[in-house]
């Protein structure tokens, strides 16, 4: 795990991208390593939320443009980049992005792939691909549109301009802004708050929220209803309601 460090404070895991020499560029190797690490944590039942960060100074500057300059379309299509992005997008575990400094191109798309984004007041988001004669290729056009609306997305994606943490919060991308030096602890606290809820319920609610990006409303509402019916068969919902009535913290088992 050369370009990443992983720390565990169960039920929260923190994955830190750690190649400041190239501003955490998302080379193919790094993307594969990241997808491997996230998959591994996703498969671990002790991990209920993952914080993904580049530390208190920068998040990720996007693809390694040198790799993209001379690559043929066929070669790109066959590379592990696309598979890695799909694996990152298919996680079941809650992913909290903790963003400081630049999150550009693929870095911004990585933040957009998260469930929640905690940003330092230094964070800067953007999709500058059009300035390089390219387009975002890992969800930038689609997720910006779903997060912020089509016109706001066009403002970001078609001009290549950057938005700071405050504008990103207004657009709906950023959940909370914190001082850079408290970024990771604050993201971990948020992840811990989520992880303290019923694990089955969090997974089901997350899946339902994600369906909002994929399904028509009627189908998404049906999916939500099915998730509720499923939860009504769980021990966790009995424990959650009993704990509320007993005025004590719940002890969820994930059953």
């Amino acid at each position: 795990m050369g370009k990443l460090t992983i720390s565990r404070n169960d039920p929260v895991a923190v994955v830190t991208m750690n190649s400041p020499e190239n501003r955490n560029a998302l080379s193919t190797d790094v993307l594969v390593e990241l997808a491997d690490a996230l998959d591994s944590l996703d498969a671990d039942p002790e991990v209920r939320a993952i914080v993904l960060t580049g530390g208190p100074a920068l998040f990720a500057s996007g693809a390694d443009v040198r790799q993209l300059r001379d690559i043929a379309p066929v070669e790109y299509a066959a590379s592990a980049r696309g598979t890695s992005w799909r694996r990152i997008g298919a996680l079941d575990t809650v992913l909290v992005a903790a963003v400081a400094g630049y999150a550009l191109g693929g870095g911004c798309e990585l933040a957009l792939a998260a469930d929640l984004v905690v940003a330092a007041d230094t964070a800067v988001f953007g999709q500058p691909e059009v300035k390089l004669g390219l387009v975002p290729g890992a969800g930038g056009t689609q997720r910006w549109a779903r997060v912020a609306g089509r016109y706001a997305a066009a403002g970001v994606v078609l001009t290549g301009r950057t938005v700071d943490a405050f504008e990103a919060r207004e657009l709906g991308l950023v959940h909370r802004i914190v001082p850079a030096e408290r970024l990771v602890p604050a993201a971990m606290a948020l992840a811990g708050e989520i992880a303290a809820n019923g694990p089955l319920a969090v997974t089901a609610a997350r899946a339902a929220v994600r369906r909002a990006e994929e399904l028509p409303l009627s189908a998404a509402l049906e999916f939500e209803r099915q998730q509720l019916l499923l939860m009504l068969t769980s021990d966790d919902h009995v424990e959650g309601i009993t704990a509320l009535l007993d005025k004590r913290p719940p002890r969820f088992t994930g059953q």
Binding site: D121, F166, R169, R176, I177, V178, P179, E181, R182, A186
Partner: peptide, 16 residues
């Protein structure tokens, strides 16, 4: 200057 009072209070709570 760019936050609601609640957002600003949450930020302040994280300042060292």
């Amino acid at each position: 200057a760019r936050s609601t009072p609640d957002q600003a209070r949450l930020y302040d709570a994280e300042l060292p």
